[in-house]
Every structure is written in C-alpha cells, then in structure tokens.
Computed example of a mutant assay.
Amino acid sequence: MPTPTERADEYWSAVFRVERAVLRLPGVHATFVDDPRAGIYVLRIGDTVRVRAREALRGQVDGLLRGLSVEDALDPAPWRSALQGLDPVILGPAAHFVSGDVLRPAVEEARPTVEEVRRMAERIPAEEVEESGVLEPDVEHFGSWADGDLVAVSALGPWVGGRTDVGLLVAPAFRGRGLGEQVAAVALAVSARRAGLARWRCREDNVASMRLAARLGLQPYGRNLGVRV
C-alpha cells in the first residue's frame, strides 16, 4: 500500500508530466502546457523545484529560471520582476502537509448547509475565505456553532483518492478557542477513514495554521508559490 507521501508524489508527477522516479530530481525544472487559463505553479520538495506554466509564458519563465536557485524559487520578488507588465498576483509561499493517520476528533461530525457557510464567510476578509477553500465547488463541510451561528467550518475538497484536501475557516471573534482544531480534526478523520490520507495547505505566514498542522499530527511534504497573470 503506497504511503501518503508516495501518493502525493504520484499526483505531482502527473501535474508536472514527469515519471515519478524523476519527480525529485534535484534542481529547478519547468513544464509548459498548452492551457490558456494556466498561470504559474512552483512546487519545492526538498532540493527539487518544479515549475508549471502555460506555453505563452515560456520566454519570461525560461529567462528567470536560468539564474534562479532552488533556495530563491519561492521568493515572490524575482517572479514579480520577471513578469512585470503582466500584472502578476503572487500567492504564497504556502506549506503542504499530508497524513495517513486516523485521527480521533473530540467532537462528532456536524454538517452546516452551504448557505450557512456563505453567511459566515460574508463577515470574514475575502482573501482569508479564498485561502480556506470552503466556498470552492464540490466540497464537503463540517462545522461548529455558537448561539445558533456557524463560527468554524472545515471543508474537504477534491484531491487524491476523492475529497481529501482539507480547508479551514474560523470567525475572527472565535479564534483561539480550539474550535478550528476540533472541526479540522473531524475533516481529517473522515478523509483518512475513506481514503487513507489527507492534505493540508496554508500560507507560511499564517502562524496559527502552521502550528495547528503540527498539533494535528500532519507531516510536512513541500512548499509552493502560485502566480496569476
């Protein structure tokens, strides 16, 4: 049975269109795709950096990568400079974690409606909502309520093996009370039970989320940077 890390490697091998045996080849490597909607995705795993970009950006990307080190690949500055004039939006860097452990949540599964999630999200900054992924299509929600209002929600979105990509959003006034950890543990347990793994992603400057990943027993996998142009 493949480990969660091996299954993640299989996924990224398909994304970057390389054999799994060479996915972790040290250095900086680029894959170009004929997809006019694609931006730029940069993934670092250990000493390897993989870059996926649309073919129309080959000139800018190749020019940057010729002098880009593994250590600097997730620094937004060189990407912003190389893509000036294309109005780039830099997302990240973010950390990736995986887990195959069956976690034991402290609370039972409770499922909010999509409308409840939307009402909660309206009171939270849009960039936090986007990062959480709780409003993405085809996600499954788990929640916690206070005085009848949804105040914490986790989500399982599509990834390896089904819905295994975990997102989390907590209303600002209710942070620091352990509610996020409770609903995240529920989502992780459901994902692990069904598929044998789960993925967690968060911005590296989101200190609370990084610490929560460690408390939940998740294992570091890699880091990424996204660029919209």
Rank of each mutant, 00 (worst) to 15 (best):
V151D: 02
E204V: 11
E19T: 15
E181R: 14
Q60M: 10
P26I: 14
A184Q: 08
A152L: 08
L188C: 06
A56M: 06
A152P: 02
P105F: 04
L150T: 02
F97D: 04
R175T: 15
D75Q: 01
V33S: 05
W200E: 00
P125I: 13
V151P: 00
R215D: 05
G143R: 10
W12M: 10
D165I: 10
L218S: 02
R58N: 00
E136Q: 14
N224I: 05
G196Y: 02
V160E: 03
H96V: 13
V139Q: 01
G161T: 11
A14K: 15
R37I: 10
I40D: 01
I124F: 10
A8Y: 11
H141A: 07
V18N: 02
R54A: 08
A121Y: 03
E116I: 14
A214R: 12
E71V: 10
F16W: 15
V160M: 11
R24L: 15
M1Y: 08
V183T: 02
V33I: 12
R111M: 11
G226M: 08
P112A: 12
E109P: 06
P78N: 04
R201K: 09
A187P: 00
G167C: 15
R119L: 14
L169T: 06
A171Y: 14
E71P: 00
E128I: 13
A146L: 05
V49C: 09
E181Y: 05
D35F: 14
A110F: 08
E108G: 12
E6K: 12
G161Y: 10
F32M: 04
D35Q: 07
L43F: 06
A8C: 13
G222Q: 03
R7C: 11
W200C: 04
D35Y: 07
D87P: 04
P220W: 12
G92P: 00
